[in-house]
Design a protein around this nucleic acid. Structure first.
Lengths: 333, 333
DNA sequence: CTAAATTATTGAACCGTGTCAATTATTTTC
DNA sequence: GAAAATAATTGACACGGTTCAATAATTTAG
C-alpha cells in the first residue's frame, strides 16, 4: 500500500506533527528539517489522503447543482455556466436532476450532505419545500438558482419572471392580439407562478382575454397535448404563449400537423430562447433569459459565500428577460 | 452541529457497531432493534459523513463523467443515463466538460483524482491521449464512453460509428444520390474518424462520389460556415451528410437562407437524432444512437468494475446505430 | 432441562490527517 | 553566562465512521 504520513515521519526521523507542518505551514519548519522531510516525501511517493484531510478539516471543494432537468437546454446552459465558474475556483460540481419531484430532490440533498459539499445551488422543485434549511443547519451554504427569495438571509440569482410574462403579453397585445392562450405548467413551480402573474397583470392592463391551458410537464410531448386542447376550444385564440420553448415546439408541431399556419393564423411565443428556436419549423419568437450568465453568477456568489463565511453579504440578484422576435409571432390579420 | 453515529447510538440505547450495522448490513440486526434505530436516525436527521466512511473503507461512492460538451444534446442524454444509473446505486456524479481540449481534460482528471473518485467515465478528447493510464495506476477504474477500445484490459461502451457512416451513405445511395458532401468534424475525434471510414467504405461499394467539408467544431454556427462552402462548390452535391445534428441544423439554415429547397434540391442527413430534429424547419432525417441507454450501460459497467474488483471481466459493448427517416431526405429528382 | 448451535450486540482499535498545548532547542539581551 | 524571549518540534487526541473478535442473548437439539 502507499505510504502515509506516519511512514514519512518515521523515515525522516521527525514527528507526524512536523510532517503535517511541512505540508501545511512550511514557514514554521526549520529549513534543514523542511528539506529532509520533503526529500523523504519524494522518495516514498507520499500523497496525502484526501479523505482524512477533509474529515479533519470538515470542508470539501465541491458544490452540488440541483436542477429539475439538465436535458432542458435552458438548464444545460445554466449548468455549463456553473461548471465553468466553479472550475475556475477549483471546485468540482455534483450534478443532480430532481425531475421536478420533491422526493428525488430530498434524496439528492441527502446524498450531497453525505458528500459533504461546501454549498448547494438549487432550483427548488416546489415553492413550498424548505428542506434546504436542513442544509443551512449543517453549515452548507445554499443559494437559490432561477428562483427569487423574499428571505434576505439567503442568496438568490433569478430572472424577473413576472416581467417576462408581462413582456410576452405586451408584445402580443401590441401585435393586435386580444385573445391569448397561456400554456402554463405546474403552478407549484415558482417560475411558472410568476410568469402567470405577469401574464395576468399585463392582460388586465391591455384588456386582453387569457385562456389558461395547464401542462403537467414542461416538455414537447405535453406541448402536443396542449395543442390538441387548444384546437378543441370553442373559440380559437389568435396567439399562444408557452411557459417554455419545449412546450412551444410541441404546440407548433401539433398545430402544423393540424394544418394551422404559424404565424398567419396563430402567433406562437415561447420562453427561454433556447438555441434551437432558430432552427424550428417556424423560427420561434421567445423570451430570452441569460442562462449561462445566470449559472456563472450563481456559482460565484455561492463560492464567495462559502469562503467568506462570516462577512458575506447575502445578495438577491435579478436579471431581466428580453424579447427575441423571430418568425412565429406577427400582427393579427 | 449535526448528529453523528455516536449520538444516534446513545439515543437509541445501542452501541455504535449496531448503528453501523443498521446502515450497512441491515440483515444481521434484529427487526425490532432495526426499527428503533431507524426511527432514531429519522428523528435526529442523521446522515453519515461520507469522508469518515471513505477513510475507513478506502473507497468513495463517486464517479466522474468527462464529456466533450454537455450542451450537446447527445451528451446531455448520455449524462442523464449515467446519472440515473449511478443514483440507483447510490453513487454521485461529478460533471466535467473538456470542450474537446486535451489540456482541460487533463486538468479535470487531476481534479477527479483529488476528489478520490472511484471510477471515471470518459469520452476522450483525443484518440492519442492515454493520460487515463495514470488513473488506473491509482486504482481508479476507467471506462470509455462512446469510444471503442482495442485494448481488452478496459471496458468500453460505444456505438458502431463505422456502421453509422455506412448506413448513412447506403440510405442516400438508395435514394439515388451519387454525389454526396460529407460535413465532417475534427478527425482527431475517434467517432468522427470512424464515421468517415464508414462513409468512404460504403461510398466505394455503392460507387458514390464524396466531397469532404471539414468543420472545426461540431456546432450549428460551424454548420452555417459549412453551408457557405457547399454553396461555393463547382458542382452542387445532391445530398449532404453531417457528422452531427447540430452541424446539420446550421447547414439547413444556411441553405434555406440561400433559397435552396430541402429535400427537393438537396437531401440533408444528420447524426445523433436529437429530440429537436422533429421540430426543425424541415424535420431532420438522422442516424439515431441510443444515447440514454449508452449512459446507463456505461455507468453500470463502471460501477460493477469498481465493486467486483478482482473477478470483473472487462467488456466492450457496442450498440448499433439506426436510420430515422424524416422529411429532409428524399429520392433524387 | 441442559448443552450446543445460532443469532444479536458490544466496544475498542483503527483509517490518515490536522491541531494545539506542552516541551525542547536556539537565539537574544544585559 | 544566566535569564528571558523566540523558534522548532513533539505527540496525544480529535474527526466520524467501519471492522471484528469477544460476549451476551436466544433458539435448537437431544
Amino acid at each position: 500500500m502507499s505510504a502515509n504520513l506516519r511512514d514519512v515521519a518515521k523515515k525522516a526521523g521527525v514527528s507526524v506533527g512536523t510532517v503535517s507542518n511541512v505540508l501545511n505551514r512550511p514557514d514554521v519548519v526549520s529549513p534543514k528539517t523542511l528539506e529532509r522531510v520533503q526529500k523523504t516525501i519524494e522518495e516514498l511517493g507520499f500523497v496525502p489522503n484526501g479523505f482524512a484531510r477533509q474529515l479533519r478539516s470538515g470542508y470539501s471543494r465541491t458544490i452540488g447543482l440541483v436542477v429539475t432537468d439538465v436535458a432542458n437546454p435552458f438548464f444545460t446552459e445554466v449548468a455549463r455556466g456553473v461548471e465553468d465558474a466553479a472550475s475556475k475556483r477549483d471546485y468540482a460540481v455534483f450534478l443532480c436532476n430532481s425531475d421536478e419531484s420533491l422526493e428525488k430532490e430530498n434524496k439528492y440533498l441527502s446524498v450531497l450532505i453525505q458528500q459533504q459539499v461546501r454549498g448547494v445551488l438549487i432550483t427548488p422543485a416546489d415553492s413550498k419545500s424548505h428542506q434546504y434549511e436542513v442544509l443551512r443547519e449543517r453549515g452548507i451554504s445554499v443559494a437559490l438558482l432561477d428562483t427569487e427569495t423574499k428571505n434576505s438571509s439567503q442568496c438568490s440569482v433569478s430572472v424577473d419572471d413576472v416581467r417576462g410574462g408581462e413582456i410576452a403579453v405586451e408584445h402580443l397585445s401590441l401585435l393586435g392580439h386580444k385573445d391569448i392562450a397561456w400554456v402554463s405548467g405546474p403552478e407549484t413551480i415558482p417560475q411558472i407562478a410568476d410568469r402567470t402573474a405577469g401574464v395576468m397583470k399585463a392582460a388586465k392592463i391591455a384588456n386582453v382575454s387569457v385562456t389558461t391551458i395547464r401542462a403537467t410537464l414542461m416538455n414537447s410531448a405535453q406541448g402536443e397535448v396542449a395543442a390538441k386542447k387548444i384546437l378543441e376550444l370553442k373559440k380559437m385564440p389568435s396567439a399562444i404563449f408557452c411557459a417554455n420553448d419545449l412546450l412551444a415546439f410541441g404546440v407548433m408541431r401539433g398545430l402544423l400537423d393540424a394544418g394551422v399556419k404559424i404565424p398567419e393564423q396563430v402567433s406562437l411565443l415561447g420562453y427561454d430562447d433556447i438555441a434551437f428556436g432558430n432552427s424550428a419549423a417556424v423560427p420561434l419568437s421567445s423570451i430570452s433569459q441569460p442562462a449561462y450568465q445566470l449559472g456563472v453568477t450563481a456559482a460565484e456568489l455561492l463560492i464567495s459565500e462559502c469562503e467568506d463565511n462570516e462577512d458575506h453579504a447575502h445578495q438577491q440578484i435579478k436579471f431581466q428577460p428580453q424579447l427575441v422576435m423571430r418568425a412565429s409571432t406577427a400582427t393579427k390579420k
